[in-house]
Simulated scan of single mutants.
Amino acid sequence: MKTEAMVIRQTGGPEVLTRETIEIPEPGPREVLVRIRAVALNHVDIWMRRGLPHVKYDFPHRLGADIAGEIEALGPGARGCTVGQKVLLAPAVSCGVCARCLSGEDNLCPQYRMFGETTQGGYARHIVVPDANILPYPGELPFTQAAALPLVYLTAWQMVVARAQVKPGDTVLVQAVGSGVSTAAIQIAKLHGARVIGTAGSDEKLARAKELGLDEGINYTTADFVAEVKKLTGSKKGVDAVIEHVGGDVFVKSILATRWGGCVVTCGATAGFAPTIDLRHIFFRQVRVLGSTMGSKGDLHRMIPLFSQGKLRPVVDRVLPLWSAAEAHRVLEERKAFGKVVLEVD
């Protein structure tokens, strides 16, 4: 069938995003056709558009992992869903039959593929997905808010809950509080009883983060966040955990901001992939450095009721039409957003 989409046929700047009519397949066995109503941006969209050396592109390529919409058609044997049902999509697919998938660790499946990265994504009016990717819809949220939920909350949940194992009484440092992952991490850490310190490059972003539960804010353009963290934790103790996705020097200094026996959990490196680390600060102080990518579909099922109950809420900076995807990319690249930039699909 034909549908309209924003695609890239080459890597480069935002201008490579173009509107086209494309062919997509009919839903096959245990697949569903989803009419997309909103798709949220993530930094992976920027990296994919610019070009990643390890990715084999299948042009025309569609970006977009965070998708909300309605089921338009069912393939043979599709389970657990009906035509017209409002849905969120889990943002990645896996084989579903390996030991990792069957153990609830589908994000460690050797065939794990994220929408918009190593498989086609949601910058379109329609997408065909496995029925296993269909998630319950979070209450009465509008599509543009629901689409801001899956990837960043899944990522933050795994970082805060599974990897850092944050518990009541812990102190957590969240880097770059204006990002989607960080706005989610603040709320999840508070939900688990932690005191949360956050960094940002502006007082405005820190003020907005305090509305989400941030206890203390540090403007890294006017203060050394390591020194400030030591002051805020008393006796130069440091924090129990750092939630980090910036990389570069911020990652290096995050290790210094951690208490003896604490941990740094990282899920990205927007400011640099190759920091220079003094390993003595890791082994002598017994700091754990933990990598984290996405999370399990089961975690998403556990989280969605928290949105319906108002215990978590998506943070949307602005909504633009899908056909303004290039403008949306510029907003994200220039770090003008607090929370998510969402594309509405007419």
Rank of each mutant, 00 (worst) to 15 (best):
W260K: 02
V16S: 08
D249A: 13
V152Y: 01
V172R: 03
R318T: 15
T222M: 11
I71V: 14
V44I: 03
L256D: 10
A209N: 05
A92S: 09
G298W: 15
A200I: 11
D224A: 00
Y137L: 14
E244W: 04
R302I: 03
P321H: 05
M1V: 15
T11W: 14
A337Y: 02
D224C: 01
Q187E: 03
L343T: 08
P142C: 12
D170K: 02
L88F: 01
V289F: 06
E23K: 00
T293R: 08
T270Q: 13
G198T: 02
V161H: 11
R195K: 11
G139Y: 00
G69F: 11
D278Y: 06
F283C: 09
G84H: 10
A223Y: 12
E117V: 14
I218W: 01
G310N: 03
A223G: 10
V319T: 00
R195A: 07
G80S: 06
I304T: 12
K205I: 02
A38L: 08
V316F: 01
R313L: 10
A5N: 02
R30H: 14
K336T: 04
M6C: 05
W157T: 03
A271H: 00
S292Q: 04
Q111S: 10
S182W: 09
D170G: 00
I188R: 03
S296T: 13
H329Y: 07
R330D: 15
V128S: 05
A209P: 13
G104T: 03
V331A: 10
L232H: 15
E15V: 00
T258M: 01
G77K: 02
R37E: 04
M303L: 14
A337L: 00
Y137D: 13
R113H: 05
A257H: 07
C109S: 12
V242F: 01
L320W: 07
M114L: 08
G272F: 02
I243M: 15
A156H: 11
G198Y: 04
I255C: 11
E344N: 05
L52F: 01
C101A: 11
S324K: 15
F59T: 02
E20L: 11
I24T: 09
T266P: 06
R49K: 13
T3W: 09
A271C: 01
G104M: 03
L108M: 12
T3I: 05
A337E: 07
L232N: 14
T233N: 14
V39I: 00
V181C: 05
K167R: 08
A227G: 02
L102V: 14
G201P: 13
H301C: 08
S254I: 02
K237E: 14
E72V: 03
E105R: 08
D106P: 07
A223Q: 14
A325E: 13
T199M: 14
F251Q: 03
A176Y: 01
A68D: 13
V341M: 09
K190C: 01
E211N: 03
M6R: 01
T221F: 14
D106N: 07
L343H: 12
V345P: 03
R318C: 15
A156V: 06
V55C: 14
T21H: 13
G80Q: 08
C81N: 09
G13F: 00
I36L: 05
G116P: 12
S103C: 13
L149Y: 07
Y57R: 15
G96K: 02
I127A: 00
V97K: 04
